[in-house]
Nucleic acid binder design. Structure first.
Length: 290
DNA sequence: ATAGGCGCCTGCTGGC
DNA sequence: TGCCAGCAGGCGCCTA
């Protein structure tokens, strides 16, 4: 479920509350074989450690411990990482419970669909190696202009596919890809190589704009998402195109469409997210298969 | 290089 | 009311 703004919200919620606290113990509360790569042996490695920092890289939450190891959490589609009073009733699908120093609070990992994961990296280097091996792309807020132009110019994939590719830019998912393309007035079926430098810049800025707005609203809560404090987000109320198929475009009034693209549902305005000359082929083609 | 499909899971919605 | 297909914000793997 969660994309960059949701993960960022979790991190901002947890960072002030968790930093400096000691993880007294870890308990596995689900008998499911977790896709979560948590291993029982890690309990001993984590227990008694203080939290040095809480940060984010792409859609990954990084909880660094004072001994140098890093707890890495991915929320998948339905993951939740929340800090709650220990007396809080245990929600179903809770998989891991970290009890904090005084025992009064717990950090809980809950994941209904179990697409998420929790992994312990023994040190910074192994974590960096992991991201390098996965070729995780740069953060969207400091995209180098030349890098971005080249990333687009060098591919024939659709813009939608490029935005979803974590190796190109880390943190954008289906919702914010659609919202960013609307913001930039670019059709999701355009190919990367169809964009001139100006359009590429528009898109780069649109991504940052949309993500910043969403972070200000604590992300989007569509089904299960909540922040680190358990609060929901509010950006779902401000979607321009995502989930609005059949409704009028907020910019031009045309009917918003939803089509399958890059294997995902893609929402866009067929009028104001148009092709620029050289993209005509891509768009007329996608219009033709209606 | 790229598209498309599947699988991993559970839960909700809409159509009949 | 009940059943069932289809769908959901992620990602890795496979094939063509």
């Amino acid at each position: 479920m969660p994309e960059l703004p949701e993960v960022e919200t979790v991190v901002r919620d947890l960072q002030p509350c968790l930093t400096g606290r000691r993880l007294a113990s870890v308990r596995q509360t689900s008998r499911h074989s977790l896709r979560t790569r948590w291993r029982p042996a890690w309990n001993a490695a984590v227990a008694g450690q203080r939290v040095a920092s809480v940060a984010r890289r792409g859609k990954w939450i990084l909880v660094a411990l004072e001994n140098g190891s890093v707890l890495v959490v991915h929320l998948g589609m339905t993951g939740q990482l929340t800090l709650v009073p220990a007396a809080t009733a245990l929600a179903d699908h809770t998989h891991l419970i970290f009890t904090l120093d005084d025992g009064a609070e717990q950090l809980r990992f809950r994941d209904i669909r179990r697409f998420g994961s929790v992994t312990l990296f023994p040190n910074r280097q192994t974590l960096e190696d992991h991201f390098t091996a996965a070729r995780l792309g740069p953060e969207p807020f400091d995209l180098d202009a030349a890098y971005w132009r080249q990333a687009l110019a060098g591919t024939k994939r659709s813009l939608k596919a490029v935005l979803l590719d974590q190796q190109v830019v880390a943190g954008v998912g289906n919702i914010y890809a659609d919202e960013a393309l609307f913001e930039a007035r670019l059709h999701p079926a355009l190919r990367g190589c169809d964009l001139d430098a100006r359009a590429a810049t528009h898109l780069r800025r649109a991504i940052a704009t949309v993500l910043r707005r969403a972070i200000q609203r604590r992300g989007s809560s569509i089904r299960n998402y909540v922040g680190g404090s358990g609060l929901q987000g509010a950006y779902q109320n401000e979607f321009r195109v995502y989930g609005r198929a059949g409704e009028p475009c907020p910019r031009c009034g045309a009917v918003i469409e939803c089509r399958r693209l890059a294997g995902r549902s893609s929402h866009f305005c067929p009028r104001c997210q148009k092709a620029i000359s050289s993209q005509r082929s891509a768009v007329s083609k996608s219009n033709a298969d209606r």
